[in-house]
């Protein structure tokens, strides 16, 4: 098993070994101290060029990568759809080839369609980080979620992770299912059947520590970690569920529902939150919530990812 991360890119968690995941997390921990300093900057990636291409709105991920790169002294540039030549009809592969000609070290890519970072990674020698592709993967999110659980529970091994909500459309869920099962956790997925394709999920994760249920109140008492997914509100129009009110009644997390939870259950959410829909304000702002710890850990984890990928060339 690989114990050091030697891949050119970070595209997903599915293809990583436990050793590679642990390597990234170890380095992330070592960068934490930088983020606590008065002068939050180290010269580690001085002279490295990092280009962000965000073809979909983002607050946390975009800013987190940008802060991570700058704290490592890399030069960062970013392109968004509205300001790029994509609006003039250039294909994304031509865009990449042209940017590549300017000799960057890392591309950070967010796209609303699954698989775009993988296509790009296959045609360029530049390292590619998947910052979220469609409904597929969001590996840096899963890594920062792992780090957050490690902080609070010491180990992930044997923990019960309960993921609640729109699993069908969630890249966060997919990356976390891979990440937590690889690290030895058990995962239960819960949501309305319209957003939780039982038959296919059971086939996909057959023989793993993944379970599927529609019964939230039955699942909560078993959980150590509760990960609540964002409900994409436009799904109601497509009849995935009848109303926000009913979604909230059946699958919304609130403190009444958590009365039957374990004392040390922690609650996570990848953001952005629909307050009062998938998660009530008393839980978001309550003692179990580690949501802002996730955001803080995001910077350290992304520093580690950038460090490992941008340094790759120098080691050779």
């Amino acid at each position: 098993m690989e114990t050091h991360y030697r891949k050119k890119d970070l595209l997903g968690i599915e293809e990583l070994s436990r050793g590679e995941i642990e390597h990234i997390l170890e380095i992330a921990k070592s960068f934490r101290e930088v983020n606590e300093r008065a002068i939050k900057k180290v010269p580690t990636l001085r002279g490295k060029t990092i280009v962000s291409l965000f073809y979909e709105p983002s607050t946390r991920t975009k800013m987190s990568f940008e802060i991570a790169a700058k704290r490592l002294s890399a030069d960062t540039y970013s392109i968004s759809t509205t300001t790029s030549s994509m609006v003039k009809g250039e294909t994304f592969l031509d865009t990449i080839k042209n940017l590549e000609a300017m000799k960057p070290d890392v591309f950070i890519i967010r796209h609303s369609q699954s698989g775009i970072p993988h296509r790009i990674a296959s045609i360029t020698p530049v390292s590619v980080i998947n910052a979220g592709d469609g409904q597929h993967e969001h590996p840096s999110q899963a890594l920062l979620d792992l780090l957050t659980v490690l902080d609070h529970r010491g180990s992930v091994e044997g923990l019960e992770l309960l993921i609640v909500g729109d699993v069908l459309h969630s890249r966060v869920a997919r990356s976390n299912i891979w990440a937590f099962t690889k690290m030895g956790a058990k995962v239960t997925l819960c949501g309305p059947p319209t957003l939780l394709p039982l038959n296919t999920l059971e086939k996909l994760f057959y023989g793993t520590q993944v379970k599927v249920t529609y019964d939230l109140d039955g699942a909560i008492p078993e959980a150590d970690v509760l990960m609540v997914l964002r409900l994409q509100l436009e799904r109601q129009k497509l009849s995935f569920f009848p109303s926000l009110r009913e979604y909230s009644l059946l699958y919304g997390i609130n403190s009444r529902r958590l009365q039957r939870a374990k004392k040390d259950l922690i609650v996570m959410h990848p953001g952005p939150i629909n307050r009062g829909v998938e998660l009530s304000s008393d839980v978001i702002d309550g003692a179990r919530s580690v949501i802002l710890d996730q955001v803080t850990n995001g910077v350290s984890v992304r520093m580690a990812i950038l460090y490992i990928l941008a340094q790759r060339g120098s080691e050779l």
Binding site: P192, T194, L238, S239, F240
Partner: peptide, 12 residues
């Protein structure tokens, strides 16, 4: 599609 969603949702 609506019938499919209804049947899925009724499983709860």
């Amino acid at each position: 599609q609506v019938m499919r969603r209804a049947m899925e949702y009724s499983l709860i």
